[in-house]
Design a protein around this nucleic acid. Sequence first.
RNA 1: ACCCAGAUGGCGAAAUUGGUAUACGCGCUGGAUUCAAAAUCCAGUGAUUACAUCAUGCGGGUUCGAAUCCCGCUCUGGGUACCA
Length: 930
Amino acid sequence: MEYNFKEIEKRWQKYWKKHNIFYVKENEKKKKFYILNMFPYPSGEGLHVGHCLGYIASDIYARYKRVEGYNVLNPMGFDSFGLPAEQYAIQTGNHPSDTTLKNSQKYQIQMNKIGISFDWNRKLYTSSPNYYHWTQWMFIQIFNSWYDKNCKKAKPIEILVEEFNKNGNFFVNASTSYKKKFNSKEWNDFNSFEKETILLDYRLAFLCKNIVNWCPDLGTVLANDEIKNGKSQRGGYPVYKKNMLQWHIRISAYAERLIKGLNLVECSQSLKRLQINWIGKSIKFFVTLNVVYNNEKIKKIKFFLFCPEMIFGVTFVILSPDHPIVNEISVDSHKKNVSKYLKNNSFFKEEEEKVSGVFTGNYIFHPFLKKKIPIYISNSFFVKNDIIKSIVGIPGHEKKSNNFAKKFRLEIIKVYKKNINNNEICTNSDLLNGLNLKEARKKITKILIEKNIGEENTYYKIRDAIFSRQRYWGEPIPIYFKKKIPRTIPVNKLPIILPKVNNYHPKNGKSSLTRVKNWAWDEKNMKIVSNTLIDHKNIFPMEINTMPSWAGSSWYFLRYMDVHNHQFFLDKKKENYWKNVDLYIGGSEHSTGHLIYARFWHKFLKDRGWITTEEPFKKILNQGMILSYSASIIKIIGENTFISYGLLKKSINKNISFQEIYVDLSLIKGNNELDIKKFKKNKPEFCTFNFLLEKGIFICKRKLEKMSKSKLNVINPDKICDKYGSDVFRIYEMFLGPITQSKPWNDEKIKGMKNFIKKLWSLFHKENNFQISEINPTLKELQILHSTIKEVKNKINSFSLNTSISSLMVFVNKLIALRCNKRKILEPMVQLMAPFSPHIAEELWNKLGKKKSIINYPIPIVNSKYLINKITYPIMFNGKLKFLEQFDSNISTKELKNKILNHSKTKFLLKDKIIKKLIIVPKKIINILI
RNA sequence: ACCCAGAUGGCGAAAUUGGUAUACGCGCUGGAUUCAAAAUCCAGUGAUUACAUCAUGCGGGUUCGAAUCCCGCUCUGGGUACCA
């Protein structure tokens, strides 16, 4: 009988759906196992083979855990807020929710098609009001919380207010940007605006200014991702830095716990290191120095002093262009220059050598040299997005400072030199002279701290996360503004539904919610009303920014536990059963961003008592990325011209700048040639553009990179499933290599998997009929079976799925060689195969006469009676293999030594040479040194 | 630039974590079957000047023994905070 995968696979997929095979509910009698997959964003391209890698791997594990007796939660949903759907809406006018729904349905069909055992009953969308109700609710809780450093946890803001009423902020040790001290009387004397402003500095969600990429031509803020060489990727328009008032989440409060919590997570060391480096804990030294021409606002400035022992070498200081005081620090005669510089240098320079800067006309006072030190503004000293915005220049010993000092003719002082013993000692440093650098650092930091000039701060690189998005397609932030003070919408009025708009374009850097006519909050009647009614007494404007997509994706794994609950985001009982995720499989590209946010969010919810676990994921497995060749074409910026890739090098010096535009793989002919006709049809906006050809054709640039919809290099699994079947596709994806490794996609080798499935099928069939033998197996057959069971189980447990399949192949090959079709061997074999190729396994299981799905039968266990107890030792002479010999696995070393020395082959090889040393490593090797 | 990975036959890869380098699969070569092809089956397949020697990106080192550990490079991929 031919193996007709089309019919068989469809039939079993229908069966699973009809009988709700993967439906799961809490069951106290069974141990739980919670498997979580990477949360997909449903793009129009559909699922690609890179996503499938993780889904198949986790599905194999889920199916394996079920037959091991666990109650397995294996849910799936959609991270459905995000930029691409909004961009599509801007271009086409289609509502993002329609696009998203359509796309996610496509995903769901694709996932079912490859036989993934999701419990669709628990499906969720971050963009559905039923879900974002709770995202909004959580935002309000974050807003109404502060972080108590003494207890190392978040607490309700009321507790803080109570404390302010009692003692002011004298005994409060909080994560805050608020620096001043006040007592209870002062607190009570503040008016409500002052009080709220202070509280905002303590809240875990707070408003403050931050720099964004502003593109006036597009009227919007851009992600770094959307900018290439200082120009917007769409259209090539200039981009500027702009300071905007934005919502932030005080994630830095959790920096220490995010580091410590990693001890509770089982994952690769490299992932931990990535996270630790991202959080970036370090102890840094700062000095606060007096400003010479000071004003009311600015009397002192704090500088990062990277080498305190070199303080005598400081001859200038530098502020970053985005330092909050750059506009006020300069003296009148220099203001023009400064603003000119700021205008032209809003971007941080990538190149290392060039330095630029502008003198502010102002100085700080050097506390030891007792002289004026000039203050410059420069973008050359700061890494993009660095939290440190002011540093000192030590041109004697630091390269960039040196270049800077030379350019601006500033003094250069050497403050250490080598002495006769070649040790570095301080010089030109007054009280530090003669000390080595280590001693000098110790001495000077002590003095600086005593003098109240210096301080040692624990510094974390991790920044408070910007939470505002000037976009339409995201959760509305449940806030209204009462006399500029943000107030939360009452939680019983949630969710605040994202209103419909006609035009999705952002307007003047604001989301299109700014066009909504009814977007004001009536405080008395607690409802949304028309903007025309705003009177700032009872009716107030609502927040028009929306949340970032990481808000919804930071807690979805909790909602899966209780997805239909309309009373609360998660019932206590259910939380108590499922607790947290046992295994999370996700791409390594999420190692920092998403994982850190999710871990933070989880810790916050724990602090406030709604969940009980410190970490959301017990074990994290990073799947490697599937890479694919992208294709792009080169456009000349400012001209409506594309040039063939080969012509790029020739044009490079002609003062023209270029922009790369990704093109879909379907528009490429064999030899990297662009099908211009198809391209113009596909992208009508380029219809009138010129194409500069080389040798009559237009060549694209090809690059191997991450498979991603934004790079238009995705490969769809559907075609492969149609041609070879889902089981073959599943096995092939796993057989490609280790799950954690990234690899380029190539489907040439899929034939091997087709052969394997065919061979498996043929074991059960003779002359087109299903035929198996009821005879008892031989010892040899049982030995093969049980060693395979052991091997496959070990390999699944260590997620070596590619080698599990190898073992199964060896098994099948051996059975074919033995012509074994005995039920007692084949039944356990089908069970071993079932997690990998569930469709064919169900079919064979059914033919073997079983009445229920194979998922209901426990996986066979290893009988050690049938495991072979011998070890083949390689016998080497001077590290070179000479022969092999089998010995009992529990033989003593002494006996082994005897046997080997008296072995005829040893004697032959030795002849009359003397053994210098005999190395016996039990269960490994024997090495004879002569 | 910084942080994290990876590099093994013609190709995807394996190697019990320092102990027989190349399992398993693709491809290729030869044979069987066939009028022929496809499909299938059988055998072979790292290289070379073949009882040996050389081979795990490059150059050193540690060790009885290194793909695996250490030092210094090269190339490729991911991340760098508003793609998800």
